[in-house]
Amino acid sequence: MREFQYVITDKEGIHARPAGAFVKTAADFPCKISIAKGEKEVDAKRIFAVMSLGVKCGEEITVRAEGEQEEEAIAACSEFLRKYL
């Protein structure tokens, strides 16, 4: 399993559009990918779940990947977050 932490810098937080795009990025990989804020951890491939975290600007999230292509998945997710959020 691999994971990394990231602090959201977009002033609107993970709003609908980036949530959708993030879910799409995650869906490209066969491994399990999750996103967690505090205690709450959700499946990163489910848009309602990701949006339900309600991640705001300045909050830290943890992205975890486990299984096939986990390394590539982590790289792709981290690149996405740095670029858009």
Binding site: A16, R17, F48, A49
Partner: peptide
């Protein structure tokens, strides 16, 4: 694109496994 993106999100919502 900015205004249209919401309809892409709506499609994803309809495919959301939880839903």
């Amino acid at each position: 694109e900015t205004g249209a993106a919401i309809f892409e999100i709506h499609q994803m919502m309809l495919d959301d496994p939880d839903y």
